[in-house]
Write a protein that binds this DNA or RNA. Structure first.
Lengths: 356, 356
DNA sequence: CTGAAAGCGCTTACAG
DNA sequence: CTGAAAGCGCTTACAG
């Protein structure tokens, strides 16, 4: 494992009979090099098996060619929530085109998070992507103070008033939630509950508010909202609370698939038939959701696409192109079998025209 | 987002009235510095808000302070298999102690994988961890030829004959599989099937072979083995094939939780009761498995611990301590409710003493 | 205990 | 089109 006497650009230059500058230029193409010398340079490099030292190049160019991603989620969520792996896959696809890499940090405390951003800012990465945005997210100020280029992934279009000051890639979760509520109402449900994600997150809040608004639009009671934390155990607990009510809901809209699956299992363990007695929907379109019994109606979020788009936006910002907010909306409802009419659907008449 | 005129070690030195070398030494402690000048240095640094440039330090020390991890799995598996997130969390915990970071690459082809390792070797990382080892894994030769320090995570103790030439952190999957088979046999099962992971992986192979051996030890037919690929859809398909047999198994040992959950769901959708008519077991102890109905008997693999141990082994190797193979065995069976006696368990008498 | 200087291995104006 | 040289911002022998 001993470093085998590294060959440097100087060796290649000498071998090819040119200056180091010329070797550099032959590869970068930033200035014309005659075909003949280019050939000699490449031949020498190949023979000596030279590749430019990333460390030296980073110092000379003030660029590291790596992007940072710090995730501050419960390890259990990271381990099962399909969003992160898909999002990272999307990032990778565009990073690979540029010969760049992704630096991943999983942190479990605010202090650790702060330390990580400071470390990243000291020349470890060229920029970062901010995930899981919270209201008045402290990271907005932090990255700007650290001089760390960043783009933020958001669940709704940035409004003129609230300014993160950072280019934002946003999607629109509300359409999908509205559609889910439509599906449920069309099937005859009126007592619909929502198991939200953590409400400190913007996306958790947006989905909750959209749910509430959609229910109100239809003249339905929107008070059946409980907050989960995206883990299976929270899906189980919140569902138990909901089913324990005097008038339990006939349908539950979960903010992610894991909570939905755990909720569904809990219902079943109590002898509640899904979907005959309880309809459920998820969010994320995890691979598993298609292979459940019943298969889970859920929302595909285009996590891969959003990773790619966010990364492209960040690279554009680094190239000092004027940073713009960009819409990345690949959110779509995936209808499967976890919705049915409620037990006594006939007792309720849906006012015509209230839903489409 | 304009770089705010970076302050360098030179600024700090001037401000503190010392040389750049002294500033460096005051922080590294590699040579004694008088308390008084140390104080001046720290004060100056704090006032100027200086932190050493990672890029410059990397070039000067020939160290990047980052470790590479390249995963070559199906995106669907990465998105739901809890192993990776947990393993990465374990890595992070020891990297954080050292102010280091993890460079993650997800690749989808052999060519991309090769390109990535070459890029990593050009001074992007100090070393790599090799996951998902295959038989005669080509990466053993590759990293050595690239001069890239590496440690490999393996599912069994390296035997004297087969030499990867690399320090290995190994666990022993066989005990857990043996225990699972015991559980099933004790419950009265004789027709037990195994849905294996991809057999090109050592760990897939080890579990399969252990299963076969355990069955043979008990005088049972060990031919009911089918190969899955760790995805839910493969869990579904393999289970369908198993249940379609003339004599379907009464129990299925899956190589991971996702396949088990999908298999369980398929069985249920066919009206097969779990566990009354079909016992199933998983592998991984994903958070979800505890919250299923029935909860899944599975195997906790200590992925977090293994990540930490592998990372420590790599750092030790980098510190040129003599690299040793180390056992990281935190594998333990988690008994839950997905095992029951087979439908007509009474028809079979278990020979005394064959199992404990 | 401290300073001056070389060196890490590239890139990039500056001349020609 | 090409070369010589400075510079990126640290660390580390080498002297003292």
């Amino acid at each position: 494992m001993a470093e085998p006497h590294k060959v440097t650009i100087g060796d290649v230059a000498r071998h090819a009979g040119v200056s180091k500058g010329t070797v550099s230029l032959a590869y970068s193409g930033k200035r014309p090099v005659s075909p003949e010398t280019r050939r000699r340079v490449f031949a020498a490099a190949e023979q000596l098996k030279w590749t430019a030292s990333h460390r030296a190049r980073a110092l000379a160019t003030s660029r590291t060619g790596t992007i940072g991603l710090v995730v501050a989620r419960d390890p259990d969520v990271l381990a099962t929530d399909p969003f992160f792996a898909k999002f990272i896959g999307g990032c990778e696809s565009v990073l690979a085109e540029h010969g760049m890499g992704l630096m991943l940090h999983a942190v479990t405390s605010k202090e650790a998070e702060l330390a990580v951003y400071e470390r990243l800012a000291s020349g470890r990465v060229d920029g970062v992507i901010l995930l899981d945005v919270e209201v008045d997210d402290h990271r907005f100020a932090l990255v700007q103070q650290l001089g760390l280029p960043a783009v933020v992934l958001s669940a709704h279009r940035p409004e003129p008033g609230e300014t993160s000051g950072l280019p934002t890639v946003y999607s629109d979760d509300s359409a999908a939630i509205g559609e889910i509520v439509d599906l449920l109402v069309d099937a005859g449900h009126t007592r619909i509950a929502h198991v939200a994600g953590p409400l400190r997150y913007i996306h958790g809040r947006v989905r909750r508010e959209t749910f509430t608004a959609a229910m109100h639009d239809r003249g339905l009671d929107a008070s059946l909202v409980v907050e989960g934390d995206f883990t299976a155990s929270s899906g189980r607990d919140t569902t138990a609370r909901l089913l324990d009510r005097d008038e339990p809901p006939t349908a539950i809209v979960y903010a992610n698939d894991m909570m939905a699956i755990a909720g569904l299992s809990l219902a079943r363990s109590r002898g509640v038939l899904v979907p005959e007695e309880l309809s459920v929907t998820g969010y994320d379109d995890s691979e598993l959701s298609a292979h459940l019994s019943p298969p889970l109606t859920t929302v595909a979020t285009g996590a891969v696409e959003r990773g790619a788009i966010a990364m492209r936006a960040l690279l554009a910002a680094l190239a000092s192109e004027v940073p713009e907010d960009v819409l990345a909306d690949h959110t779509t409802v995936v209808r499967r079998g976890s919705i049915a009419a409620p037990p006594r659907a006939t007792t309720r008449t849906v006012p015509t025209g209230v839903h489409r």
